[in-house]
């Protein structure tokens, strides 16, 4: 949680916006469009994309080829956003995403990053001992599964396409999407059926 905005910082922001508009750098309409797309950014977008990939092989192939296209296909505005890549988990391979240099995160499809994603402890530990991090969070990974830690260092943003859990045969897209949390899309958790 961030601290509430102070009156003086709000006044400063208003002066900045007014100056940018006055000098023709942005328009009110562009600002409104950007604000709407920021407000719409949420892990529900990523969850929808994954649920559809579990149900539809063609969609899955399209999404693995270009996460950006898949996001646009569910109505996410990706104009100006970095390219989105999708990491496919298989029975023998699991992915975890981190940005050791800063906090690169696929905001358009996952929303705002959680505080731990930006913490020094997550960023330094998950590259050296990812299995310990997963185990501490209640998701120990079997020894025969390869773990790939994806360090998001440059122009791409990454999300995980997890394995569909057993016991979800015949489920609808909405039911499946409800299983997919932000943490699952980062790869630090696995989809779990409700008890």
């Amino acid at each position: 949680m961030s601290a509430p905005a102070r009156t003086e910082s709000l006044a400063e922001l208003e002066r900045l916006v007014a100056a940018l508009i006055a000098r023709g750098h942005i328009t009110e309409a562009e600002l409104a469009t950007q604000q709407a797309s920021t407000d719409r950014a949420s892990p529900e977008n990523g969850a929808r994309m994954v649920a559809r990939a579990w149900l539809n092989p063609e969609w899955r192939a399209m999404m693995l080829n270009s996460g950006t296209k898949a996001a646009e296909a569910i109505g996410v505005n990706m104009v100006g956003a970095p390219p989105l890549g999708v990491l496919e988990d298989t029975p023998g391979r699991h992915h975890i995403v981190v940005c050791t240099l800063c906090s690169c995160y696929p905001r358009a499809v996952l929303g705002y990053p959680p505080h731990w994603y930006k913490s020094f402890s997550y960023r330094s530990r998950v590259v050296r001992e990812p299995r310990a991090v997963m185990a501490e969070w209640g998701h120990p990974l079997p020894d025969n599964v390869e773990l790939r830690v994806v360090d998001s260092t440059a122009d791409f943003r990454w999300m995980v396409l997890p394995m569909r859990p057993a016991g979800t045969e015949g489920w609808t897209e909405d039911q499946l999407a409800a299983l997919i949390t932000r943490d699952v899309l980062v790869g630090v958790a696995l989809p779990k059926l409700p008890a």
């Binding site: 001992e129 299995r131 773990l147 790939r148 830690v149 994806v150 360090d151 998001s152 122009d155």
Partner: peptide
């Protein structure tokens, strides 16, 4: 990282 596991990898841009 010496505390890593031989099956595991880092994938970096």
């Amino acid at each position: 990282f010496t505390d890593g596991v031989p099956t595991d990898h880092l994938l970096v841009e």
